[in-house]
Design a protein around this nucleic acid. Structure first.
Length: 463
RNA sequence: GCACCCGUAGCUCAACUGGAUAGAGCAUCUGACUACGGAUCAGAAGGUUUGGAGUUCGAAUCUCUACGGGUGCACCA
């Protein structure tokens, strides 16, 4: 998740020790659905045999399950059942639920299937993370933490923080937080989604110092879920509950409407990257900027530009807002975009290359003082933006907002481009002015590079 | 039904957290020297900040209300 990753870098830049954790939902009915569908209709298909990425293959069977499930619901309704009854009594869903029970009971056959299919998914995710350039320090697997969660809940029950209903299910009364009651364990003792989150949270509380902050970067459809979770943690007496924060972000929307994984109408990250790479390639070739590149360098460059465009596009908008994304109109490369900023950087490097390290003025030999009329307006404004950088990093950290950085670095690049356009650098005769402008350019490039790094975006030396 | 979020140029987004004439990009139109790299730069046009009421010296920003959109209120994850 790009937002979380960038926020982590920004917090790190603000002097915090950051541990990037990924919580993997590798347990539950949704996995069982895929497993069941694969058993029934998969004919032994594997990522190797089909050439599909592991996560895509498993996703395919999730969709497959839903298709058959819907058909069964329709059949049940034809037999006179109501909508709800049909959804609950369709044979497929009953079978999936049975599979979940067997999984929790440790049935070797089910567990074996789960292990293989899960490994396919992990492998697929790893590939995608690598392409996106994200990595985690710490992984939490729901398949492990739900057990811890169960223990915590049972312990909480003993300490009268929770209560049991007549059917044996365990609940939290959250009236003091003005929230409704919340089920924590089903009557049959199996756990629900939030049980696992309780387990993960308490595990993390144990692992990290008491004054740590825990930031959950999760979509805003789970706002309520986290309110409930934090309330429960507080009820259990964890002081760290006050340091838990849900960094909630708006969903990416397609013009046709919401993305739905069940119907397979998600924009897949891999497809998106592929498409961006090919637009970057086209644009580069059209502009004829590749003469000096080896094929490998060119491929690398396309990737850098594509990822720059993609990440910038996502991170420049305030995370709280939902944004509209039309995958058919591929992301622009002109204007307020990642490549615009990358281009500015590459252009500065071109100048610096011409001067060479020997020609660069030492920082102490440059007169940074703004002495009246000898300094152009444009130079002043670039200098002002450079000067603002540390404050911007701080602000971005305080608001958990990469968008602040993105908008800043765009403005910096824009002002530099104006300066670049209006003022001579290499051709300037006055040595003091020339040195000043070189140093200003050098500094601008550094800030661009650093700011982009906070967004997880690389900048190319030429493009 | 109840709760939360959102509504700014045709489109995608800004606006230092209540401050002066609401700013950018895309798209449209016009232009740029001997091009330190034109993925650039300059200009034009585009707004009653969804409507209405209120608080304030001052409101896109706070309150209320209407309308429009989204999400949640699962023994799904």
């Amino acid at each position: 998740n790009l937002l979380g990753y960038s926020v982590a870098r920004i917090l790190d830049a603000n002097g915090n020790r950051v541990v990037k954790a990924n919580l993997v939902n590798d347990r539950g009915i949704h996995i069982c659905k895929s497993m069941l569908a694969w058993q029934k209709w998969g004919k032994g298909e594997t990522p190797d045999s089909s050439g599909m990425k592991g996560d895509h293959l498993v996703g395919k069977y999730y969709v497959e399950f839903d298709k058959h499930y819907k058909k069964e619901i329709a059949e049940c309704k034809a037999k006179g059942m109501g909508e709800e009854e049909a959804e609950k009594k369709a044979p497929l869903i009953l079978e999936a639920q049975d599979m979940l029970r067997r999984w929790e009971a440790g049935d070797p056959e089910v567990v074996a299937l789960w292990t293989t299919m899960n490994n396919w998914v992990y492998k697929g995710f790893d590939q995608t993370y690598a392409r996106l350039g994200v990595a985690f320090d710490k992984m939490y697997y729901e398949s492990k933490t739900y057990l811890i969660g169960k223990e915590i809940v049972l312990d909480g029950l003993n300490r009268n923080h929770f209560f049991k209903k007549a059917d044996g299910s365990v609940w939290a009364d959250l009236q003091e937080f003005k929230l409704e009651e919340k089920v924590l364990l089903r009557a049959d003792g199996t756990s629900v989604y939030i049980t696992q989150d309780i387990g993960t949270a308490t595990e993390r509380f144990k692992e990290f110092p008491d004054d740590s902050h825990f930031i959950y970067t999760v979509g805003n459809e789970q706002d309520h879920h986290f309110k409930v979770l934090f309330a429960i943690l507080k009820k259990l007496g964890y002081r760290q509950a006050d340091n838990c924060y849900h960094l909630s972000y708006g969903m990416v929307e397609l013009p046709e409407g919401k993305m739905k994984s069940r119907e397979g109408t998600v924009v897949d990250a891999d497809d998106l990257i592929d498409e961006m790479v090919s637009t970057a390639k086209e644009a580069s070739q059209q502009l004829g900027k590749l003469e000096e590149f080896t094929p490998e360098e060119a491929e690398k460059l396309y990737h850098v530009i594509a990822m720059g465009a993609l990440k910038y596009f996502i991170l420049k908008v305030d995370p709280k807002k939902k944004m509209l994304f039309n995958p058919k109109e591929s992301i622009d490369l002109n204007g307020n975009t990642g490549p615009f900023i990358q281009y500015t950087y590459a252009r500065i490097q071109s100048i610096l290359r011409k001067v060479g390290p020997a020609g660069m003025p030492g920082t102490d030999t440059v007169n940074w003082k703004l002495e009246g009329s000898s300094v152009e307006e444009k130079e002043k404004s670039v200098l002002k933006w450079i000067y603002d950088f540390p404050a911007v990093v701080k602000e971005a950290g305080a608001n958990y907002s990469p968008a602040v950085i993105a908008n800043y670095v765009y403005e910096l690049a824009r002002h530099y481009n104006q300066f670049y356009h209006d003022v001579q650098i290499l051709k300037e005769g006055d040595e003091q002015k020339r040195n000043f402008r070189l140093a200003l350019s050098h500094r601008t490039a550094e800030v661009i590079k650093n700011a982009m790094a906070l967004l997880g975006i690389e900048v190319p030396e030429r493009m």
